[in-house]
Design a protein around this nucleic acid. Structure first.
Lengths: 352, 352
DNA sequence: TTGTATGCGTTATCAA
DNA sequence: TTGATAACGCATACAA
């Protein structure tokens, strides 16, 4: 493949390579005439700079390596979309690596002995490719410290975090989200609000429980332990736990489920037991998954700020690699979630 | 940032740079002792090759530029997942560009005057980055010829295509998919099968209609024009068109919807009019979207071979850039879809 | 204002 | 079996 270089431009324009470089980078003082001439030839020969050569010289690639634990998980596309959006604005390229963690080590994505060598290999590759920084996009919010090898390259975590001081992490605020969801129930007049939690060993579960609890306390509502059920994030657990909830004496009028799958499981359980949603029981989900909008009733849910996390991630790493020292203070950032009001919540009817 | 180079290795091991290169690439004949010594130093200094320098020298980056029209659209993540999987096997890196077409020019993603300059800019960037090839991932299956600028780099299209001879395109077989879906209805005993089509100007709509028609003819079924309805891909059109269908004299016993949104719109319409799915009316959707699995009944649907398209795309471009001439024959490839049997289809009851 | 020359970290040719 | 050395395309210090 033919490739036109600065040398070709120089010869054709009868100037030196340096001059070509000057007009290309608008460095140095180039006379108007020569400049014009050079520009002409550049256009004429359809010159495209060789960024590989430039990178070698400058020791800077303007490229960010993005490691995503699993591309096909619902959080990834929107985070990457955000990364891309600001990357373009900042003149950064994205070198994407998809670990396909879910498929590769589906049983235990948290086993460092399994995962660390994979990440190490990917990072070595990125080091060799001379990326200026790395963004690591997690599968779900959790501590990945043990799986991350040492590295000199600036690295930033999103949708996960490490306990290391020097590691940036951008996440959303689980506690605030659950707090506001619960507040929303209260604002509609609910006093008996149940909670269907995710796995008990999940960080998100803890934080969301905590937000729920704070709201209950703040509004001086009775905290009823039998309203707290622990599921496993899946439809079936939402379904069966809701059935348990509806078989007790003192029925709740509202259920906060920690994800949308369990939320629609809850709706189904209500329906199967003859309760209507939201008329008899109100339900809020989490994650704002697509299917919630197509369900009947349309699911009210907490939306995660995925795109904004991506936007902020790339922006932050940009500052990091540009050596702005100020950013080192707010290393751990957390963004707010937003309630999507749809049709699965209404005031309690007072029937029970 | 400290960076250890071959020169450092050479000095430390008391050999020449060339020798280091020889052992690194296993080229040339290097004595066992020197080899061992060099390898030791490499490990000791934790040497990582500079692929930028190598690329400059070799005029090959082993990097594929992936341009995706919209990352957040349902087809993209699985295609990219497939691309990544084989990219890793083939030693290729992925430079990802997300056009965010849906957001940028939401009204008219097909207007070349709007889109072509955007693509041109992205391609110039990829040319400068010296990618060895380009994969272009479309928003939906259609002819994008007019939006694609000329380029010297090997380029391959997936989830879209061009009319140019020299352009590879990997897509799925819409006609086969609709043909098999209709056959499936017939195999269950259905004779009165309605079709809810997508936009009439869509290539997919045409092909799927054609597959439907072939199946009807093949089984000597009566082709009833009033069973053909044209929607706009959205839930609401599936809903209202199904209502129209159910208000005619001669009710269909089965409905093939050209996507999952319209399919669940159809289910809802059936329910609202007092028909049960699948007992009274069977329904098949298209695309195997996630929400179909959570619907009630679980939606039987045609699954698109997205991951396989990605796998094949990167494999094909690999052959293209390796200069295998044999692949030029089968430039336009089409992959089969697969029916996902769930709960929205059963034999007709014979009530109408 | 413009040109010469050096080096970025590799690979590869040619000599030794 | 090894070592000098010249590219690869670009940016830049320094000279003119």
């Amino acid at each position: 493949m033919l490739m036109v270089t600065m040398k070709d431009i120089a010869e054709r324009a009868k100037v030196s390579i340096a001059t070509v470089s000057y007009v290309l980078n608008e460095s140095g003082n180039v006379g108007e005439d020569t400049k014009k001439k050079v520009l002409e030839v550049i256009k004429e020969l359809n010159y495209r700079p060789n960024l590989i050569a430039k990178s070698l010289k400058m020791k800077k690639t303007n490229t960010i390596g993005v490691i995503v634990e699993d591309m096909t998980v619902f959080n990834a596309p929107n985070i990457i979309d955000g990364i891309n959006e600001n990357a373009e604005k900042l003149g950064l390229s994205i070198l994407l690596t998809n670990m396909r963690l879910e498929k590769r080590v589906s049983n235990n994505p948290n086993d460092p002995d399994l995962v660390k060598p994979i990440i190490k290999k990917i990072m070595d590759e990125l080091v060799s490719k001379k990326v200026d920084g790395i963004i690591y996009v997690g599968l779900h919010p959790r501590d990945v410290t043990e799986s991350i090898p040492e590295t000199d390259i600036p690295i930033l975590f999103t949708y996960c975090y490490t306990t290391k001081q020097e590691h940036c992490a951008i996440n959303y605020n689980d506690e605030q989200a659950a707090y506001e969801a619960t507040n929303y129930f209260v604002s509609k007049g609910h006093k008996k609000i149940a909670l269907i939690s995710g796995h008990i060993d999940s960080m998100s579960s803890h934080s969301r429980y905590s937000g729920y609890y704070k709201s209950i306390k703040k509004h001086n509502l009775l905290f009823n332990p039998s309203y707290i059920k622990t599921g496993d994030w899946r439809f079936d657990s939402g379904y069966s736990l809701t059935k348990e909830l509806l078989e007790t004496k003192d029925l709740p009028t509202a259920i906060l489920a920690m994800n949308d799958q369990m939320a629609i499981g809850a709706i189904r359980a209500c329906n199967d037991l003859g309760y209507r949603v939201p008329d008899d029981i109100s339900i809020i989900g989490f994650d704002n998954r697509e299917f919630g909008a197509y369900y009947s009733p349309k699911l009210t849910t907490m939306s995660l700020p995925l795109r904004r996390m991506g936007l902020l991630a790339i922006e932050t790493i940009y500052h990091l690699i540009s050596g702005s020292p100020t950013d080192c203070n707010k290393l751990k950032t957390t963004l707010s979630c937003e309630l999507i009001e749809r049709d699965s919540v209404c005031p309690p009817t007072g029937l029970f």
